[in-house]
Amino acid sequence: MSFESNGTTIANAIEVRGLKHRFDRQQVLDGVDLTVPTGTITTIVGPSGCGKTVFLKHLNLLLRPDSGSITIDGIEITKLGNRGLNAVREKFGMLFQAGALFDSMSVFDNVSFPLVEKTDLAPQQINPRVRQTLAAVGLEGMEDKFPSELSGGMQKRAALARALVTQPKILMLDEPTTGLDPTRTGSIHRLVRKTQQDFGLTAIVVSHDVPEVFSISDRVAFMHRGKMKLVGTVDEVMASDDEDFKQFLAGRAAGDELENNPVSS
């Protein structure tokens, strides 16, 4: 599936080439290459601290790369000015790892916020859309609550509703199911898949719910030490002989890293 942009069919919603980013002495991204076909769900997995969230924040230039190129919907964004960048950002919906809900606003105001601020929709159009999105994430009746009154999982779902309400072309989800019980995790996965199918959007999911998240993934990228070590369909990646990936799947990678870097008491 692909969507039209300026009359041209764009096969790949996102193309990243040679992306590098260094924090002080730590090379967090060390030449990342990734192509995300339009209308697919690509899941990025990898050990904690391997740079998944940093990579995600580069796709809408929350962080600027030291070098490399990022092409979104056919537009190279690293050299764009504010106006051009905002036009690209309006295509994105993003769920942050910790939700990033506005704590001074109610759940309803949080979810309606992007519609109120960035569209000309009337309140009569906004209200049903917000309630419908909240119902989809299982938060009906929570409209008047404030984020501090919600559990961590409910905050995550409210934040997901805020990311979905604008019906973005590209959805970026940073650990959407962390902190949720298995039932909610399954329902969020199904919601992401359904939304993706209904609107033909492109989604990038960073997740630790391996292998559950593979059930909604068209492609999987395994990130390791600042690089995409494996990229392919779920079957291709699962069939890989890569030792680091096998260790990651077996849950040993984190243990090995802890053994190599013991915390002194």
């Binding site: 809408n60 950002r89 993003m94 990033a100």
Partner: peptide, 18 residues
């Protein structure tokens, strides 16, 4: 400071709000 720490300022940026 709290908005910065909890990524609320980043959330505004990704919504294309300055």
């Amino acid at each position: 400071g709290s908005m910065q720490a909890s990524e609320q300022i980043d959330a505004l940026t990704v919504m294309a709000i300055n």
